[in-house]
Design a protein around this nucleic acid. Sequence first.
DNA 1: CTCCCCGTCGTACCCCGGTACTACACCGAC
DNA 2: GTCGGTGTAGTACCGGGGTACGACGGGGAG
Lengths: 222, 222
Amino acid sequence: MTTVLIADDQPMQRFGFRMLLESQDDMTVVGEASNGTEAIRLVDRHHPDVVLMDIRMPGLDGIEATRRIVATGDRTRILIVTTFDLDEYAYDGLRAGASGFLVKDAQPEELLAGIRAVASGDAVVAPSLTRRLLDAYIHHLPSSATAEQNPEDPRLASLTEREREILTVIGQGWTNTEIAERLHLAESTVKTHVGRILAKTGARDRVQAVILAYDTQLVTPA
Amino acid sequence: MTTVLIADDQPMQRFGFRMLLESQDDMTVVGEASNGTEAIRLVDRHHPDVVLMDIRMPGLDGIEATRRIVATGDRTRILIVTTFDLDEYAYDGLRAGASGFLVKDAQPEELLAGIRAVASGDAVVAPSLTRRLLDAYIHHLPSSATAEQNPEDPRLASLTEREREILTVIGQGWTNTEIAERLHLAESTVKTHVGRILAKTGARDRVQAVILAYDTQLVTPA
DNA sequence: CTCCCCGTCGTACCCCGGTACTACACCGAC
DNA sequence: GTCGGTGTAGTACCGGGGTACGACGGGGAG
């Protein structure tokens, strides 16, 4: 039996959660809190498996409450359930030690699955936030292949000397017209070079080519 | 209608996926591949919304196939579905550009929800992996508190929080369309933000904005 | 010598990016 | 209450960027 504590300042929201959870025969609601301080007290008393934690509550908010509950070393897991997936506090909640972050407009089944996952030690994140998380930290993910950071980056290996030259000035923000003028070329020639650079490096457009130029240290930040 | 391509070397597995997907009236299977090479070819032909990608396949595996499909700039999203959640290649798959990672023993509803999330530009990660992801990178999560303490480059001083967020993803090479999708905005809104960013920073176009993002360390080389 | 890569240039075409507006809801400051 | 900043969204327009072709001279490798 999974014991759950509901922490939300909106009574109707608590009621909805309680109805949903009580309809499951493997879950039971052991208490309701309307602010962070109350949540901490009830966790200390009941030691629930999971806390459904709202972020925006009067007095002590859900983030700080999460932080303090986690700090006690209690086995209670915190699942943050808030209204907006773009809430800036989402990151803070996870950093505070929450085991999950879901949005309130999620399907009831998703919420229930999230509670069960969190209760069993796993973690869940709303898809909309997962996207941003991955985008922000994809480059920090460990790689099974040893990351090579050679002076000659393999991503530039197939470029000719001229193409590398063009990529450098692209990385400095020049337009095709400017490149043509300053390098005494026809703009069509510049376009040909740019096209080949994109094809060889896999960059989609000159923006990604600029990023590649920085990542490979072909150009360096000012 | 969400179009899906199934890439798995086990015929029975493909059959199971196909039966599940075809039972949904908002999904249709546009093809099946038994290895990575075939998957790439079928993506190029059908441009499906989502690819259900197995990792372990003879010849070209799912990771490399993902990498190459993503590199084409095609709008196709890759959802990796594999047998073992402990598979070391999971990280590689996400780094290769996959929009999600699920395990095959997930509930059918989870799989369907994952496909829909990925098709709409979001991302999904299996709870068991999410736990490990958070544990490993929790300390790298941005904090709204620390963000305020960061010494600000004067060139970014006039930008609002939202504009800084947009500039960050511009610095990661996203197109306006992608920004709109992944941040759940209208493209016109994105253009408004981009226009204000350029006006405030003096950047001529998004290319120079990327350079500015690097120079001010709003984004850092990989 | 012949082949092929490289660098050059051209045309045609389409789409994305950027600009120039307007508009509206929200919210905090005055 | 009014005002301004912010975030959202829309329409219309145009130019640059990127693609898909083809073409040609030079030069090194076979």
